[in-house]
Computed example of a mutant assay.
Amino acid sequence: MAEELRNLFDKDYINELSTSIKSEYRNFDSRLFQSLIYDDMWNELALKQRVRHITNCLHKTLAMEFIEVLELLKKVAPHCRGGLTGIVFPDYVEVYGLEFWNESIKALEYFTQLSTSEFAVRPFVMKNQSLMMDQFLKWSKHPNEHVRRLASEGSRPRLPWGIALTSLKKDPTPIFPILENLKADPSLYVRKSVANNLNDISKDHPELVLEIAQKWYGDNIDTNWIIKRGIRTLMKKGDQQALELFGFGTNPNLIVEELTVTDKLTIGDALSFSFQLISSDEKPTKIRVEYALDFVKANGKHSTKLFKIAENVINSGEKKVYTKKHSFKDLTTRKHYPGKHKISIVVNGETKASEYFLVV
């Protein structure tokens, strides 16, 4: 994925960026800019390295005061590609604008509406957390959904590809007033960010997130969606408080029978398995059915990962039959290794049955 994304910053993009800058600033030396871009390392640079390299080459080529560059980039940005490629503009602010707080914050607010400033804003949090959290709080009430999302996404303690905010990992309470303003946001784009922020926090402070979940649950359907997505890691871990919040309590009257699994498979093949889930409970029961795979790692140790099968209701005396396959094909994000593996069927956070199989 990262390999594909870095290719967004290709020669066509660099040409478009050069042309757009040249149209606003006639003295821009596009030849020098491109000669700096395509150095010996360009083809080896990863996604964020390419972005930072473009930023540094712009700085060397423009040779202007920061405020002047900022005004130029504000004119240029709307004429360039949006989406991920637009992070070049806030990245320039991140690198060269920390000493120009007011101007930089206004610029990040502007650029995020064309792309996202979620990565660029993080050094500002580290420089002055109190001031930046006040800014996030203001942004959480902004009329533009991209700016409201920045309030949540920029304050995430564990933002993927972003600098970890160590202080907020230790004490996330300054984030909560921001999320409170966004807990019923009309934009799904914003609500996803709020859920991801809560999920980040749950990895270090599950008790705080569960407290918020209990407080928020039932407000409205959108807030309930945020909560469920926000406690997804806790649910995957089988946290009973998280599961019970959504009605998935442990139940000894739920039984898994006839678990059959492929005895042996080769890396690249798919594991086939099936089982029956039977309820002897007197009333209908909400069920969250998952399977856990105990993978063999390169060092011979094991690592367990949980995969969701279904969420529904099983009636008294009902029997549900599940048949699934799981690919053991190597991916860039996951490698498989030979050895004895285990599959477990998990219902409402409780392991109901397990079987071993061999990968060769």
Results as ranks from 00 to 15, higher is better:
8 L>G: 05
11 K>C: 00
12 D>A: 09
13 Y>Q: 01
16 E>Q: 15
17 L>E: 02
23 S>C: 04
27 N>I: 11
28 F>C: 06
32 L>Q: 11
34 Q>E: 07
36 L>F: 12
36 L>V: 02
40 D>P: 00
63 A>K: 09
64 M>E: 07
65 E>W: 13
65 E>V: 08
71 E>D: 09
74 K>P: 00
88 V>Y: 08
93 V>K: 01
95 V>C: 07
96 Y>C: 06
101 W>N: 02
103 E>D: 13
118 E>S: 01
119 F>P: 00
124 F>K: 00
136 F>G: 01
138 K>V: 13
138 K>I: 09
142 H>G: 05
144 N>E: 08
144 N>R: 14
145 E>L: 11
148 R>G: 03
149 R>F: 07
153 E>A: 07
154 G>L: 02
156 R>G: 00
159 L>Y: 07
162 G>E: 06
163 I>G: 10
164 A>D: 07
165 L>Y: 07
169 K>V: 13
172 P>N: 11
175 I>A: 03
176 F>A: 08
179 L>I: 08
179 L>M: 15
184 A>D: 13
184 A>F: 06
187 S>D: 08
198 L>I: 09
199 N>Y: 05
201 I>E: 04
202 S>G: 07
204 D>W: 06
206 P>F: 12
210 L>I: 14
214 Q>M: 11
218 G>V: 15
219 D>Q: 11
219 D>A: 07
226 I>F: 09
231 I>V: 09
235 M>Y: 03
236 K>T: 10
242 A>F: 02
246 F>H: 05
246 F>G: 02
247 G>I: 08
254 L>V: 04
256 V>Y: 01
258 E>R: 09
261 V>Q: 04
261 V>A: 02
264 K>P: 00
269 D>W: 00
270 A>D: 15
270 A>M: 15
271 L>E: 00
272 S>Q: 10
279 S>Q: 08
281 D>Q: 15
282 E>G: 08
283 K>N: 13
285 T>D: 11
289 V>P: 03
295 F>S: 03
296 V>W: 02
297 K>I: 13
303 S>G: 14
306 L>H: 14
310 A>S: 12
310 A>R: 10
310 A>I: 05
316 S>W: 11
324 K>P: 00
331 L>I: 07
333 T>V: 14
339 G>K: 08
342 K>C: 05
343 I>Q: 04
344 S>T: 01
355 E>R: 15
358 L>D: 15
358 L>G: 02
359 V>T: 06
